[in-house]
Amino acid sequence: MKTLERLVLAHLRPLVSSFMDPLQFAYQPDIGVDDAVIIYLLHTSLTHLEKAGSTVRIMFFDFSSAFNTIQPRLLGDKLQLASWGGSSPHYMDFGLPHSQTTVYGDDREYRGLIQDFADWCLRNNLQINAGKTKELVVDFRRRIATLRLHRLDWSDNTNALVKKGNSRLFLLRRLRSFGVQGPLLRTFYDSVVASAIFYGIVCWASSITDRDRRRMDRLVRRASSVLGCPLDSVEVVGNGRMMAKLSSLLNNTSHPLQDTLTALGSSFSERLLHPRCVKERYRRSFLPAAVRLHNKQNAR
């Protein structure tokens, strides 16, 4: 089925690409989860939170068996309209809207937009799974400081990655005990262990605390001792992948952050202007950190 999807996609994408929503991330070349949820969503939220007294509310929607409940007639009508150039690009994800909405403004505007979304789902025979639909409110105003129960950092993410990494290191040790060595053992590490512990690293590499970084590095050193060869630290892997992602963004003219990156370009050199950062949480996020690395490498 994966092979068939790729074959169909190669023919389908050119037909619908001109009608795609600019924030369509699925089935797009060189764009993935990192770009959608973590880089774009975090960048948009953190830049807004740079303003004093600002808040962010994000709604993550989940549908109950979306592709099983949507009516083929509705999907056919949308694709037919698209072929005539009359369809709204917002619905070009095979008839499904975006899974998350970020709204800045007063409460009435926010609730009105949510109600419009719920009405749209009803008209298109889509049922929202209330149990898995979540709302995230980010508010750093002093008057609600006493209500804050969780820190907005990457500690929970680090805990999950370390736990997953330890469980997969056990499999690596077992393979070595069975006599598996050399390139085959390294391939297993890259595909099973490293893919888990470095998941989304372009988003959190510059933002985690020194304590969490040391925990991740200990995990890498244990893997290195099992393999019997040196492995790059979390910082080295993170910097390399951030630079690769930044290069990809600069070369992808259809990426939602392209306008932001274009505004940072310098007309006199290959350097990028550093984004204006007021709060530490934005200064340590992906885009400012990647720009610092980019300029540092160009200065050498």
Rank of each mutant, 00 (worst) to 15 (best):
L41P: 00
G165I: 06
S285T: 01
L75D: 12
T209N: 10
I31D: 01
K296P: 01
D34R: 09
Y104G: 00
A52E: 15
V16S: 09
L122F: 04
P288S: 03
L49H: 09
S224Y: 11
Q80W: 12
Y104R: 08
R168K: 14
V202G: 00
L184A: 15
I201G: 04
L113A: 14
W120M: 13
L15I: 10
D156E: 01
R123L: 07
W154D: 07
R292L: 15
R214L: 10
L273R: 06
S195L: 05
T69K: 15
P89T: 09
V226Q: 00
G32H: 06
Q115S: 15
Q100K: 01
R213D: 07
V37H: 07
D77M: 11
R215V: 07
L272C: 02
A82Q: 12
V56K: 04
C229S: 14
W204M: 11
D93E: 00
A289F: 01
H98C: 07
H294T: 01
P97R: 13
G165C: 07
R6K: 13
L122G: 06
T253A: 08
V8G: 02
A26T: 11
L96Y: 11
M216E: 08
L257M: 11
A118W: 03
A36S: 11
A263Y: 01
P288N: 03
Q28S: 08
N157C: 09
W154Q: 13
R173D: 07
D232M: 12
T102P: 00
L96C: 14
R276E: 10
A196M: 04
L41M: 11
D107V: 13
K279I: 05
L227Y: 08
L287F: 03
N298F: 01
G32W: 06
L126T: 06
V291E: 00
S266Y: 00
L172G: 07
D210H: 10
S254Y: 02
R241L: 09
D21L: 01
D217S: 04
L41K: 10
I144L: 05
R186G: 04
R13M: 08
Y110G: 02
R218N: 15
W154H: 13
I39N: 02
F63V: 10
A130D: 10
T55R: 15
D35V: 02
G238L: 02
A145V: 00
L264M: 09
I38N: 13
R151F: 03
L172H: 06
Q115W: 12
A263C: 06
L46K: 07
Y110E: 05
V33K: 02
T158L: 04
Y189H: 14
L113I: 15
V234T: 13
L246V: 04
Q24R: 06
L12T: 05
R168G: 06
A263N: 08
G228T: 09
N166F: 05
T209I: 09
R281L: 10
F286E: 14
R241F: 04
R73Q: 15
T158M: 11
T101L: 15
E280V: 08
L75Q: 13
T101H: 13
Y91N: 11
M59T: 15
R176C: 02
S254V: 03
R173V: 06
I208K: 05
G105N: 09
R222G: 13
R148V: 05
T187R: 14
R215H: 07
H11V: 08
I208E: 05
S267C: 02
